[in-house]
Design a protein around this nucleic acid. Structure first.
Lengths: 229, 229
DNA sequence: CAGTGGTCTAGACCACAAG
DNA sequence: TTGTGGTCTAGACCACTGG
């Protein structure tokens, strides 16, 4: 007899990887598996649900459970607060606020934040340093109608990033990763060569319908984001 | 009364975002919450477990459940098979195998794959096309002692990527994202300018202790990886 | 030891979708 | 209508860990 949903999970993994259950094919129902393994149906359900969340199984009511043909690997990253990321590398963190203005964002930003044209927002431009060396360049728009407190805050010490993470309730967002070729302005700030390839992260977050903030981060050359599969 | 673990989940989310449960503080025990909400303890458990998986709560036996201070955003991406990614864009996919050799990999690859020095592996160099235009450049090392079938396979039609996804059982891996500045060789193949910033993905996968494959993908300029939070 | 979360069980009802 | 997964319940025992 197999006990515990994790053991059941491992057994099902074995059946999948060893082709006992072939890709695209239906597997037995939860009830049948419960009887076969000598455990309760809920335990089988727990194991199958886990495999479905990992993308290995496709489950539908009435239709049954199938082994997925092209199991797309799901990857999870944790997006850290920049200060903690730097300190995690064992480096000294500093934050340098370069610009801080109230102004009307360009169209592409307004579109990404789904705001009416002409809305005024807080614009922040800042450099994150690790051991005095440029680590990431941050360009951020903040919707002050959602977080008015931020207008009065001293951002020379605490970064907007950190304040928002801890104070703005958040319900959803979008993330986009890419590569950016350093232009002269960026190269000078980042102390790198013009044309260096920089890892770029764009993130937009909102609560319910209101956009909170939209940020673009350019990382130092050779920066890499790592994770396990 | 609140019914269903998803409703319970939403209620708990509300308490967290509205600071009813403050960051760093203990929340009531599962049993207390079950009584308060008028549902069973298992339902409360299901909801709390979900929030813990999302990184909003920290749960420990005997110590109780706390609201996490710096909720690191967890992001999940699906890493698609390149062919499906191209076809998903509505473009015609082609695959062009440029090199295919048995040889001894350089040290950094051996290290990444944790293999003994001097091991011979299959080296593949291929270009993925979308509507005849370069989409991604793939450089891959395959451990033939794990998947010997691949040596005899015709890879001019089916890409190694796809074959491996469907035929190699997989237990873990590493993923690394970054930016790469196109050198002359790459620029010529990708039909881009020297110095263009290309999005770079490196992936290593293994089964148990054996490394299966190690791949590096360079994407066309302006390529971006998107996801929801 | 005692308190907390982790999990199992058996039985039940519901939601969905194919026929 | 029927078969399937999705979920709830009440009660139980286990596993870990602080005192």
């Amino acid at each position: 007899m197999i006990q515990g949903w994790q053991e059941v999970n491992i057994e099902f993994m074995r059946r999948i990887t060893e082709r006992e259950w072939r890709t695209g094919e239906l597997i037995p129902t939860e009830s049948d598996l419960a009887i076969e393994l000598g455990c309760s149906r809920v335990t089988v359900n727990r194991a199958l649900r886990d495999l479905a969340e990992k993308g290995l199984l496709d489950r539908k009511r009435k239709k049954g459970t199938r082994v997925v043909k092209n199991p797309e690997r799901k990857v999870t990253f944790t997006i850290p607060v920049t200060r903690l990321e730097v300190e995690g590398l064992g480096a000294h963190y500093q934050h340098n606020l370069l610009k801080r203005k109230l102004k009307i964002p360009p169209k592409n930003i307004l579109k990404r934040m789904r705001m009416a044209p002409g809305s005024r927002m807080l614009y922040l431009y800042a450099l994150h340093l690790a051991d005095q060396k440029p680590f990431a360049l941050e360009e951020r728009w903040v919707n002050l109608s959602v977080v008015p407190e931020l207008e009065m805050l001293d951002l020379s010490e605490l970064s907007a990033n950190e304040w928002l993470v801890n104070n703005a309730s958040f319900s959803g967002g979008e993330l986009s990763l890419g590569a950016f070729s350093a232009d002269p302005v960026v190269a000078q700030l980042m102390k790198c060569e013009v044309g260096d390839a920089l890892f770029e992260v764009e993130r937009t977050t909102w609560t319910e319908d209101q956009m909170i903030t939209c940020v673009r981060l350019l990382y130092t050359p050779n920066y890499r984001l790592h994770t396990r599969l």
